[in-house]
Computed example of a mutant assay.
Amino acid sequence: MSAPLTQSQIDDILALDAEKRFKYLVKEVVSNREIWILTDEHGCVMLNTDEEDGVPVWPNKEFAELWATGEWEECKAEAISLNKWHSRWTYGLEDDELAVVIFPDQSEEGLVISPEELDFELKQQARK
């Protein structure tokens, strides 16, 4: 687990574009060995677009918690170990034909990729 982020660090990271947030997420997830989602009594939170449904993921607890407002204020940030992500989540999301929404910002902007693509990038980063 990483040290808590300062507000200045959070602001700087949120100012990054979607591609840079993706790179930050990959490095943080591999470094901390965990990825963050939001959950409620029904399971994990989903984002829906015209084309597909996806599970939003964040690199740190602080960013996931920033989303737990409004209609999601009852949600809790939950860490998933990197091992569990590789062994269960990647295949489960693919089987359910769900995408992964990478580190969406407050305006719901984030890269939408396949679970397999995220898994590949995480494994590439782990080899470095």
Rank of each mutant, 00 (worst) to 15 (best):
A99N: 12
V30I: 10
S107C: 06
P115G: 15
L47Q: 11
M46Y: 06
Y91I: 09
T69V: 15
G54T: 02
L47W: 03
D105L: 07
Y24R: 10
V29S: 05
P59K: 00
S107M: 09
N32R: 09
S81I: 02
P115K: 00
D119A: 09
A64S: 11
S87V: 01
L111P: 08
E109T: 09
W36Y: 15
S31C: 07
D17M: 07
T69N: 07
F120I: 13
A68R: 05
S114P: 04
L82H: 03
D40T: 07
E51T: 10
T90S: 09
V55D: 02
D17H: 10
D53K: 01
C44D: 00
N32L: 04
E34Q: 15
D53H: 00
A64P: 00
D95E: 11
L66F: 04
R88D: 14
W72C: 04
E52Q: 11
E34Y: 04
A18I: 07
K76T: 13
L16V: 06
V29Y: 01
D96K: 04
W89T: 04
E74M: 14
F22V: 02
W36R: 08
N48V: 15
E71K: 12
A15P: 01
D105R: 07
H86S: 11
E52Y: 07
L93I: 02
